[in-house]
Amino acid sequence: GKMTGIVKWFNADKGFGFITPDDGSKDVFVHFSAIQNDGYKSSDEGQKVSFTIESGAKGPAAGNVTSL
C-alpha cells in the first residue's frame, strides 16, 4: 500500500536519494525514475512524499513517488 515519508536527501546529479518513512521503518532508496512529477524528476530534502515499496535488484526501493 501507499506510505508517506520525508525525502532525507536527493542527489539530482546521480539521480537517487533516500526517503525516511513516517512509520519509523528503515530509510528507503529512491531512484529518479520512480518520481511521478511531470518534467524534471528530482526531489528536495524535506519534501513530504507518498510512495509504494517495490522490490528492486538491490533490495527495497520506493515506487510511485508523489509530492504531497
Rank of each mutant, 00 (worst) to 15 (best):
D27T: 04
F29A: 01
G24E: 02
S33C: 10
P21N: 03
G17I: 05
T4A: 03
V49I: 05
G56V: 04
D23A: 03
V7T: 01
K14S: 07
K8W: 04
W9Y: 07
S50P: 01
Y40P: 08
G15I: 05
S25R: 05
G59V: 03
K58F: 14
D38A: 13
D23G: 05
S33T: 12
T20I: 12
G39H: 10
S33A: 06
P21V: 05
S67F: 15
F10N: 02
F16L: 02
G63T: 14
F18H: 02
D44S: 15
K14P: 02
H31R: 03
W9R: 00
F51A: 02
N37Q: 13
W9F: 08
H31I: 06
S25W: 03
A12D: 08
V30Y: 14
D38N: 12
G46V: 09
I53Y: 10
F51V: 02
G46M: 09
S43N: 09
N37P: 11
F32N: 07
V7R: 00
D13L: 13
T52S: 08
D23E: 03
N11S: 10
K2G: 07
D38P: 13
K58G: 09
D27K: 02
K41F: 14
G24K: 05
S42G: 11
F16A: 01
V30S: 02
E54D: 08
V7L: 14
P21E: 00
E54R: 08
F16D: 00
F16V: 03
S43L: 15
S33Y: 05
S43V: 15
S33H: 06
G15S: 04
S42F: 15
G5R: 00
K2Q: 10
K48D: 03
V65S: 02
A57P: 14
V28E: 01
K41E: 09
G15M: 04
E45R: 15
K58P: 06
S55D: 12
N37A: 13
A12T: 11
I19T: 00
A34V: 09
V7H: 01
A57E: 12
V30N: 00
F10E: 04
S43W: 15
F16E: 02
N11T: 02
K8R: 09
A34M: 07
G17V: 05
G39T: 10
A62D: 01
A12E: 09
F10R: 00
K2S: 09
N11E: 04
T66R: 08
F32Q: 09
K58Q: 10
I53G: 03
N11V: 02
A57Y: 12
A12W: 15
V7F: 09
I35Q: 02
D22W: 05
G5Q: 01
F18N: 00
K2D: 05
E45L: 14
D44Y: 15
G46N: 10
G56T: 15
K58S: 09
D38Y: 14
G39R: 09
D44R: 15
A34C: 08
A61T: 14
G17R: 00
G46F: 11
S67Q: 12
G63C: 14
Q47G: 09
F32G: 07
S33G: 06
Y40M: 12
V7Q: 01
D44C: 15
S50E: 09
G63L: 12
F18G: 00
V7K: 00
G24Y: 03
S55W: 15
M3C: 11
D13Y: 12
K14R: 10
F32A: 11
D23V: 05
H31W: 08
N37E: 11
K26M: 11
N37K: 12
K41N: 11
Q36Y: 10
V65T: 00
F32W: 15
I6T: 13
D38G: 13
